[in-house]
Design a protein around this nucleic acid. Sequence first.
DNA 1: TATGAATGAGATTTCATTCAT
DNA 2: GATGAATGAAATCTCATTCAT
Lengths: 229, 229, 229, 229
Amino acid sequence: MSEIETIQAYYAASLGKDGRITRTQRQILAAALDLFSEKGYEEVGTREIAERAGVAEGTLFHNFVNKNGILDAIMQPIVKNILPTMLNTLDQAVLDKDSDTLESFVVALVQDRVDFVARNQASLAVILSQFFNNAADRAAVLGMVSPTILAQANQAMDRLKAAGELVDWPNRMILQLVFSTLGGYVVEKVLYPQVDRLTSQQATRYLSDFLVNGLNPRRIPLHVDETSF
Amino acid sequence: MSEIETIQAYYAASLGKDGRITRTQRQILAAALDLFSEKGYEEVGTREIAERAGVAEGTLFHNFVNKNGILDAIMQPIVKNILPTMLNTLDQAVLDKDSDTLESFVVALVQDRVDFVARNQASLAVILSQFFNNAADRAAVLGMVSPTILAQANQAMDRLKAAGELVDWPNRMILQLVFSTLGGYVVEKVLYPQVDRLTSQQATRYLSDFLVNGLNPRRIPLHVDETSF
Amino acid sequence: MSEIETIQAYYAASLGKDGRITRTQRQILAAALDLFSEKGYEEVGTREIAERAGVAEGTLFHNFVNKNGILDAIMQPIVKNILPTMLNTLDQAVLDKDSDTLESFVVALVQDRVDFVARNQASLAVILSQFFNNAADRAAVLGMVSPTILAQANQAMDRLKAAGELVDWPNRMILQLVFSTLGGYVVEKVLYPQVDRLTSQQATRYLSDFLVNGLNPRRIPLHVDETSF
Amino acid sequence: MSEIETIQAYYAASLGKDGRITRTQRQILAAALDLFSEKGYEEVGTREIAERAGVAEGTLFHNFVNKNGILDAIMQPIVKNILPTMLNTLDQAVLDKDSDTLESFVVALVQDRVDFVARNQASLAVILSQFFNNAADRAAVLGMVSPTILAQANQAMDRLKAAGELVDWPNRMILQLVFSTLGGYVVEKVLYPQVDRLTSQQATRYLSDFLVNGLNPRRIPLHVDETSF
DNA sequence: TATGAATGAGATTTCATTCAT
DNA sequence: GATGAATGAAATCTCATTCAT
C-alpha cells in the first residue's frame, strides 16, 4: 500500500496473459497471507514465504516487484472492494426513498459486512494490523473514504434526523459509533477466528438492533453541554 | 511485553537509587514513545532513538536490556494500570448494591476510561499497534483479563438482566459491544489526537447514552434464532 | 562443536546437491582455517574471513549458520575421524592376539597418529586452541572417548601387564604418559609447522622407542608409597 | 603479556606505597583468575570481573591500565618464576659435577615442577589457555627460554650422552619428550583439578622413572635412518 | 519462467574504556 | 581512591533484492 502506484503494477508483468493470476502467484499469496496474518508483516521473511509457498526466493520477485508488493496484492482486493461496496450501500440508502427508517438504514449497513468478515478473516487480520502499524497504509485505507462519500453519509444522516429517525448528535460521533460497532465485530472475528458462536445472521441481528436502539432519537433529549464547543 | 519477566528488570539495574526513573531514561523513553507512536516499533531503529534522545546508542542498552525493553517500559505502566483500574471499577459495580441500574453501571465503566485515553494518547497508540501486530503482546494484554474478572463481569451482567435493566443477550455479545464502543473511542482519539472536538465530559455522555439505549431490555424481544446454537 | 547438534546442520542447507562442499564453502573454510590457526577464533572477525575468502560477509551466513558454524565445519572432520580411527586401532590391538608385545601395541598407537598430524597441522592448531579455551569444545573432544573405549584400553593394558610386557603402574598414569608423548609431538608440530627436522617415519621411531622403554616392566620395581591412597 | 612493557606498569601507579598489592587489587585479581580459568579470557567481561570482585567497573581501570593488564598481572608472577626457577635448576645440574647421572638430572627437573603445578593450577590454566590462543603470549612465554638457557641445556645433555647416561638422540627431540611428559602432567592437573589420585611425591616418582627409562641409552641402538636428514 | 547463491547495507547488541562526581 | 553512567567503535547476523544459469 505504502507508496501506492499503478495498482496492478505490483503484480509484475507476469499476470497470465489473460490478466488472471497464475498458479505460482496464488501459491505465494496464500503462503504470505497465512504468515502475515499469523505473525505480522515485519516478522515474516521472504525466505519463509518462499519456503511455505514451495518456490524459490527469487520467484517472489519475479512475480511481485517487492515484498511490499505481495502485501499490497493481499490488501488491495479487499480495500478496493469492501469500501466501494460499503459506500455503494450508503448511496442506495440515500437515494432509496423507501429506506427512510433507521432500521432499514442500519441493516443495510450491517448486513453484508458481517458476511464479508466471515469470508475474509485472514486478509482482514493483515489489513487491521497494517492499519495500526503503518501510517501510509492507514492513509491508503482512509483515503478511500472520499469527500463525496462523506457528504453522502452526512446527507443520509441529516435526512434521518429530520425524519425523527436518528438521534440528534453530531454526525461525526454517530459515524464513530457505527464504525466502532462494526469494527469491534471485525476485531473479534479476526482475532478469534475459531470461536464461532454465532451465525452471520444472528450477529447481524444483534449488531443492528444494538445500533438501532443506541441511535434512536431520545424521547427525553440527552443534555450535553454544548457551550464549551 | 513479549516474554514478561520481572517487570522492573526491563529497566536495567540502573533506576535512580531511589527507584525513580533517571533523566537519561526519561529522555530515551520520550524519544522512543514519539518514534514508536509515529512510525511503529519495527520501523524505528535504535540509532534513531538514541539520536532523538540525544544520547549514544550504547546508552540505550546501558539503561534498558533491549530494544524490546524500551517498548515494555512504555507499555507496562499502562497495561499495569488501565486494566487493573478498569477491573476495579467492575468490582465496585458488582458489589455496590446501589448501582443497580444499567446507567450507573455503564457510566462507571465509561467515565474514567475517557479521561485516561485523553491523557495517554501516545502510549495507547503504541499499545494498540502492538496489540494488532504481535501475538505475544496481544496475549499479554488479554491475559490480564483473568477468569475471576470475567466471572465478576458475568455476575454483574446477570444481576442487571435479572433486575430487568439489561437486554437478555449472551454476555459475550454484550461485552463485545461495550468494548467496541470504548475501543472505537480509543482508536479515534489515538489516530487523530489533534482533532479535539469534544470534551471528555461530552464524550462520556455520548458513549454512555449510546450504550445504555443500545443495551436496554427490549420491550418487544428481538427474535434471534437460537436453534442453531 | 559447542552445542553439538545435527552435525551437517552447520553447513546450511546449501551443500552442493551431491552433498559435496561447494567452491565458495571451500574458500571460506580455507580462509577461516588460515586466520583461526594464526590468530585464534575470538580474534578473527567475520568481515576478515569474508575478505580473505573473497566473498561478501553475508555469504558466510548463507553457507554456515554461524561464525561458530564455520569453526565446527573445520573441527568436525578431524574430531569425527582422528578419535574413531585411533580407537579403532586400540580395538584391533586388543583383539589381535598376535600383538601381545608392548612394542607392537605402542607402534600401532603411534604409527598413524604421526602421519595424521603432519597432514592436518592447521586444523589441529585450531582444535588445540579451542580445546584449551572453551569448556564446551573440550567436553566435545573428550566426550568422544566413550566408556567402552576406556574399558577396552584398560583391558589391553591389563593383558600386557599380565604378560609381563607393561610396567605395573595405574592405568590412568600410563594413559597419561602415552597421551603426553603423543600430545607433545602434536604441539611441537602445530606450533612450529615450518621446522621440519624429522620425517614421519623417524618421529614414529623415536616416540615409540621412548614409550616402549619408558613403560617396560621394571626389573627392580619402583617403590611408590601407595599407603596414602 | 601481549605487548609487554615495563612489567610493573600493569599495576598502575596504585600499588600500595610500599609496592605491595592492595586489598582491592587482590580482590580483582582473585575474581579475574577464577573467571579466566573457568571460561577463558575472551569470554569474561570487565563488568563480570568487577561484579565478582565487588568493586565498580571503573575501579578495574584505576588499578590496572587494561583488561589485558589484569591478565598480565596474573600471568607474570608465574612466567617470571617458573621458568627462571626451572632454568636455574638446569644451571645447577650442569655445574654440579656430582649430578652426573640421568636420574639425578631428571629428578632435579621434575621434582619442584610437580609441587609448583599443584599450588598454581588456576594460574596455569590461564597461561595454558593463553599459550595456545594468543601468538603474542606464546612468544612471551617461549621468549623466556633464552639462547643461553638453551645452550646450557644442550651442554648438559651432551655431557650426559658422553657419560653414557643419556640416549644418543637429537637434543631437540629429547627436550621435546621431557617437556611433553611434564606438560602432560600440567594439563591433566589443570583440566581436572578435583581428581587427585596421586600425591606430589608419587607423581614425581612416576614421571621421573618414566623419563629415566625412556631416555636411558639403548643397549641395542635404535636404528633410525638418518640419511634423510 | 524459475532458481538460489551471492550480495551488502543496516540492524541490534556488546564491551572495554573514559571521566565527572 | 572509587564510582558507575555514558560512550561509540566494532562485532555478529538478517534480509530484501539481484542476477547468472
